[in-house]
């Protein structure tokens, strides 16, 4: 092909994509905040549930240390909380895509490829998942700790059990990011597949 002589790559470095995503979140702060709050609540619930289970088993003399973990109904509750949280993220990201049809169309006319658009929305989702995850995981853990510390006859034991279940915070954060990424996939894919002409013609 004749063009190959002067051919250079089409690029979109990760650092640029991240700063673009951060800027998008900042500009649409209230929308992002609602999404993040829904993540915080879901993750806080999960993290509190897991922490409480550990504390309770520690208080009961470590007898059930090896036992089954949280009861079935609690697992159900956590699963449903996460599901609601995921649906919330999908909804919010879909709105964000619709609102930005024109922007996506414009990016494509400037030379963005499908993968770049996909990248942009996934980063945005992951960032919100990370922020919501950190706040929610620590929050839930802290609530569980305080609740038992205040009313327990052996606060020392509660403190110990809580500190040793700090791994739950890490797990919850990772889970939050994964959940947000998965939930953002459908909207991000839709955005990336938009035909530039149709995207540009779209009026909000």
């Amino acid at each position: 092909m004749k063009m190959s002589k002067e051919k250079q790559e089409i690029t979109f470095p990760l650092s640029e994509a991240i700063s673009f995503a951060v800027e998008s979140i900042r500009r649409r702060f209230s929308r992002a905040l609602i999404t993040v709050i829904s993540i915080v609540l879901g993750i806080a619930f999960l993290s509190a549930l897991l922490t409480i289970t550990r504390i309770v088993s520690a208080l009961s003399g470590g007898l059930s240390q090896t036992s089954q973990g949280p009861p079935l109904y609690q697992i159900w509750m956590a699963a449903i909380a996460l599901l609601v949280c995921g649906v919330g993220i999908i909804n919010s990201m879909l709105m964000s895509v619709t609102e930005r049809y024109k922007e996506i169309g414009t990016l494509k006319t400037l030379g963005a490829e499908e993968i770049h658009i996909l990248e942009l929305f996934l980063i945005e989702g992951a960032l919100m998942g990370l922020i919501g995850g950190i706040v929610g995981a620590f929050g839930g853990w802290l609530v569980a700790f305080i609740m038992y510390y205040v009313q327990s006859s052996s606060p020392q034991l509660v403190l110990q059990a809580s500190l040793s279940s700090i791994d739950i915070v890490g797990i919850s954060i990772v889970l939050s990011v994964i959940l947000s990424l998965v939930s953002s996939m459908v909207p991000a894919y839709m955005a990336s597949k938009l035909n530039p002409v149709e995207a540009l013609r779209y009026e909000v």
């Binding site: 250079q8 089409i10 400037l110 030379g111």
Partner: peptide, 8 residues
Amino acid sequence: SLPMIFAG
């Protein structure tokens, strides 16, 4: 700058 990012 945006189109220049894509153009590397």
